[in-house]
Lab assay of single mutants.
Amino acid sequence: RYRTTFTSYQLEELERAFQKTHYPDVFTREELAMRLDLTEARVQVWFQNRRAKWRK
């Protein structure tokens, strides 16, 4: 599977959502995914990776 490349707008929005909550529920993820034209799975994985980065 190829690596997803996020646009700067998508990253800004994902980071903004991350500032609000590190653990968005499925509705929040679905809403973000639709708004950013991504799949909910991509959003979920982004948050997993972002939390890992945050913990370091």
Rank of each mutant, 00 (worst) to 15 (best):
R42L: 13
L14M: 10
R51T: 09
F27E: 13
Q48G: 09
F47W: 03
E12D: 10
T7R: 04
V43R: 01
N49V: 10
L11N: 06
A17L: 11
T39A: 10
V43T: 03
H22R: 13
A41M: 09
R3L: 13
F6Y: 13
R35M: 06
A41T: 13
D25L: 02
F18R: 01
F6P: 09
Y23H: 06
A17M: 07
N49R: 07
D25H: 10
R50Y: 02
K53H: 15
Q44E: 09
E13M: 10
F18Q: 00
A41Q: 12
E15W: 01
T39Y: 04
F18M: 01
Y9D: 06
Q48C: 06
N49M: 05
Y23V: 05
H22M: 12
E15R: 02
S8N: 08
L32T: 04
R51K: 03
T21R: 04
Y2F: 03
Y23A: 12
K53P: 03
R16T: 02
Y9V: 13
Q10W: 00
F6C: 10
R29G: 04
L14T: 00
K53S: 15
E40K: 06
T4A: 07
L14F: 03
A52E: 11
T5P: 08
A41I: 09
L38S: 08
R3T: 15
R3K: 13
D37K: 15
H22A: 12
T28E: 05
Q10I: 03
R50A: 13
E31R: 12
V45R: 06
E15L: 01
R3H: 15
Q10K: 02
T28K: 09
L11M: 12
Q19F: 07
R50T: 09
F47C: 00
Q44F: 15
H22N: 07
T39N: 10
R3N: 15
Y9G: 15
Y2H: 13
R51A: 05
T7W: 04
R16L: 06
E12Y: 03
L36C: 09
W46V: 02
L32Y: 03
D25F: 05
E30A: 13
R16C: 05
E13N: 14
L11R: 07
V45K: 05
Q48P: 02
F6I: 09
F18H: 01
L36W: 01
Y9W: 05
Y2E: 15
L11P: 04
R35V: 09
Y23S: 10
W54L: 10
Y9F: 15
F6K: 03
V26Q: 09
R1D: 15
D37Q: 14
E13Q: 10
F27H: 14
K56V: 08
K20W: 05
Q48D: 14
K53G: 13
T28V: 11
R42D: 12
K20I: 13
L11S: 09
Q10E: 11
Q10M: 14
A41S: 09
R51P: 01
T39Q: 12
T5F: 06
T39G: 07
V45W: 05
A52L: 08
E12V: 06
A17K: 06
R1E: 12
R29E: 04
R16F: 10
Q44D: 08
S8V: 04
T4C: 06
K56L: 02
W54P: 08
K56I: 08
N49Y: 07
F27D: 13
V26L: 10
L36H: 02
E30I: 07
D25K: 03
V26K: 14
Q44P: 00
R1Q: 15
T5V: 09
D37C: 10
T39K: 07
N49P: 01
L14W: 01
L11I: 03
A17V: 14
M34Q: 14
T4F: 04
E40D: 07
T21A: 10
V45P: 01
K56N: 06
W46Y: 08
E12G: 12
A33W: 00
R35P: 00
Q48T: 11
Y9I: 09
T5W: 05
W54I: 14
Q48S: 15
A52V: 12
W54R: 06
K53I: 05
R51H: 07
W46T: 02
E31Y: 09
Y9R: 09
E31C: 11
T39R: 08
K53V: 15
Q48I: 03
Q19I: 12
A17T: 09
E30H: 03
A52Y: 09
F18D: 01
V43Q: 00
T7H: 04
E30M: 03
F47E: 00
W46D: 00
W54Y: 12
V26G: 12
T7E: 09
F27A: 15
L14C: 03
K53C: 12
W54Q: 15
P24S: 02
Q44M: 08
R29P: 01
S8Q: 12
W46F: 04
Q44T: 15
P24L: 05
S8I: 03
Q48R: 10
F27G: 13
E30L: 15
E12C: 07
V26W: 07
K53D: 15
E31N: 13
W54N: 12
A33P: 00
R55F: 09
P24E: 04
A17F: 08
V43P: 01
E13H: 04
R1V: 05
R1A: 15
R35S: 08
A33R: 10
H22S: 11
K53M: 06
T5I: 08
A52S: 09
P24V: 07
K20E: 05
A41Y: 08
Y9L: 13
E12P: 02
V26H: 15
T28G: 06
H22G: 12
A33H: 01
Y23F: 05
Q48Y: 14
E12I: 09
T5M: 12
R51F: 08
A41E: 10
W46L: 00
F6N: 04
R51S: 04
D25P: 12
S8R: 09
V45I: 13
T21G: 12
L11G: 06
Q19R: 06
R29D: 00
F27P: 14
Y9T: 06
F47D: 01
R35T: 07
A41K: 06
Q19L: 13
R16I: 05
